[in-house]
Simulated assay, not measured.
Amino acid sequence: MDFTLIVVLVIVLALIFDFTNGFHDTANAMATPIATGAMRPKVAVTVAAILNLVGAFLSTEVARTVSSGIIREGQDGIQITPAFIFAGLIGAIVWNLITWLLGLPSSSSHALFGGLIGAAIVGIGIHSVDFNEVVNKVILPAIIAPLIAGLVAYAATKLAYAITRRELGKPDGRGGFRYAQIFSSSLVALSHGTNDAQKTMGVITLTLIAAGLQPAGSGPELWVVVACALAIAIGTYTGGWRIISTLGKGLTEVKPAQGFAAETSTAAAILASSHLGFALSTTQVASGSVIGSGLGRRGSKVRWRTAGRIALGWVLTLPAAAIMGAITAAIAQFGIVGVVIDAVAGALVIAGIFLWSRRKSKPVTVGINEIDGAGRVVKIRKTPRKPPRKDRKKVAL
């Protein structure tokens, strides 16, 4: 197999991963505005796709973190080959689809990082990974950003409910938040493009550097930015139609004021992190915001067992994907034969997962299930509405 052909295969596989990322994460931006009636499904999906495309052009800091931060490419003589990057991508995609099939909470971003780290450790050695960068730019943001987004969403929901408190005989005025969600959900879609599309840009840039086609430490070329922006936008548009089929059936009840608070805090956290080069999981940040906004409602209570299950799924993703990447990298060490085995095995697993998912009676929609699961962490006590004053007098009689 020609060396150039391996580079092309890695680029194609990275763009497929980018497509699946957009396919998965449409729900992060558009689940709540469609559920609350703020936007019509077709309009929401189209807007999300366009803003993902635009967002991908706004920054390249996260791409630099992936291409020259996590893996010490070009430092101290370390040289990762495109074959090992290919193996890492296969491992990440396989793990991503396994969790998709099982409905387990996971992060596409952490699956990607785990796959690359596992492949680099097996292919070159543990010294090839900059663990300080992994902790500072991946692990700590994964813990801190959802917490901050949740606290902001909690405070914003409390404020929104306090300002629009219902007075006797008058409407509460919260209906306006339904239209404000058009703005807030659009911000989430824009921020998703600024962070998630860049991860694929970083992988492709790392491949070009490893192949000697680009100098070490350089950022993504324009054609890489355009290709990744288009891939995530098309994935977002395609994934939206699958999401529409289940909206309103399984999504936790979210009030417009909650949705606006959650979406605004999610977008703010992701946009700030993208500017700083932090590689976040959009789903984790969105889930943290949904939980925070739920706690901001009166009479709310945390279901700790549910929260623990979600957190466990998130924690397992990085090491599990690293193991998958390590296995595929071990096979890739056999040269061309190993790369072919990885490609064939990966294709068979992906096809098997797809066929198995078609046999299920219920459609698999991880984006919805994860956000819905985050919403279910918070239990809202439903209080019966008091009858009007005249009716209460009749009851008393």
Rank of each mutant, 00 (worst) to 15 (best):
V395Y: 12
G292D: 09
G123A: 09
S106N: 12
G248M: 01
I182S: 02
K137W: 00
A216Y: 10
D130C: 00
R174N: 13
G173Q: 11
R309A: 03
A326G: 03
C228E: 10
A29E: 14
A142Y: 06
H24T: 03
T157R: 01
V337A: 11
S361R: 07
F113K: 02
D18A: 01
R298E: 15
I93A: 05
D196F: 09
V94C: 04
R174M: 11
T266V: 07
Q181D: 01
D172N: 13
M324R: 03
F17E: 14
M30D: 12
A189Y: 10
V66T: 08
I90Q: 07
G217L: 00
L116P: 00
A396C: 06
G169S: 06
I117L: 04
A211I: 09
A374K: 12
P141I: 00
D76K: 12
S293M: 04
A211G: 02
E61S: 13
T266W: 11
I121W: 05
A142W: 05
P388L: 04
I148P: 02
F57A: 13
D172C: 02
P141T: 07
M1D: 13
I121N: 00
I163F: 02
P146Q: 06
V188K: 06
F131E: 02
T164L: 01
W100P: 00
A332S: 02
Y154L: 04
I380A: 06
P363L: 08
L222T: 15
D76C: 01
A111G: 06
V224D: 05
G338C: 08
A343R: 12
A111T: 11
P105T: 03
G115Y: 09
V225D: 15
I182G: 00
G77F: 11
A227T: 04
S186C: 05
N52Y: 08
L397T: 15
A343L: 12
G176I: 14
T205M: 03
A156F: 12
G335W: 10
G292P: 02
P388E: 14
